[in-house]
Design a protein around this nucleic acid. Structure first.
Lengths: 132, 132
DNA sequence: ATGAAATCAGTAATTATTCCTATTTTTAAG
DNA sequence: CTTAAAAATAGGAATAATTACTGATTTCAT
């Protein structure tokens, strides 16, 4: 047998399922700690990596140098706000056809792509409006 | 005056112009050091950041946790080999239309996107072929 | 030529993440 | 219900990329 049940892993996964934003390991740690006070940060990192390797969650790298995690493993895209740093889902139709575009003139095997969008989120746009 | 000439910055930029792969700060440092022996790694980092902020070079974040730099600031895409970790240019037509797709159903301002492709490069594909 | 501002070299500090180890949990089998 | 081997844990040390600090040096408008 290779993988044993672990209460900690379950709690981490359950927490991630409740979130629509895409928390970092540190955020997962701070939250899970409330109901599981002596879990260690290393355990959070190890289990997030394990879950990602098993394909049960997604690891997001959106250019801020910190890994974010998403319990939704279906194909979808993300938006990163340059002001607040928030990472949110982006409802849009698949752009998987860009893989074909990329394969057109390339020697080697293209297996996938990573795409995310950036700009200013709705909330930050409104916050920045001048007072009138 | 805000920005003064610096011999070090010039050498860093000139070096980056000679490369078609997309070296990391460490690689830039190791190479620039040959002709400028007592340049410091901090100076390399500071100037790469400066050049990127001025828009004279591009900072690439391709998910390996290490920043890569590219003196070609024109719109183009990159490929990352999962085996050798190499980052190369990808000749393909613009996929900027995905911005419109993303904007369709989003509240907030989408300013740009980051896309890179991954897989196995030509060289690694050939290296892996069985001996016959 | 000169002096204020920018930059530098060298090094210490920071940050996200991984590794290590002695202890505790899990679980298949008796 | 034991038990014992494998897996996982807590806690802390280690790593790696990057940034910050500081006193000395360079740039350049005047």
């Amino acid at each position: 047998m290779a993988l044993k049940y672990s209460r900690q892993r379950q709690v981490i996964y359950d927490f991630l399922m409740t979130r629509k934003d895409h928390p970092t390991a540190e955020t997962v740690y701070q939250n899970v700690r409330q109901e599981y006070p002596n879990i260690s940060l290393g355990t959070v990192y190890r289990n997030l990596t394990l879950l990602a390797d098993m394909g049960e969650i997604q690891r997001l790298r959106v250019g801020d140098g910190i890994d974010h995690f998403d319990a939704d493993t279906s194909e979808h895209y993300h938006f990163v706000c340059s002001e607040c740093g928030g990472v949110t889902d982006l409802k849009m139709k698949s752009i998987a056809e860009i893989l074909e575009t990329a394969r057109k003139d390339f020697d080697g095997e293209i297996q996938g792509h990573v795409t995310y969008f950036y700009g200013v989120c709705d909330k930050c746009t409104k916050t920045n409006e001048p007072i009138h």
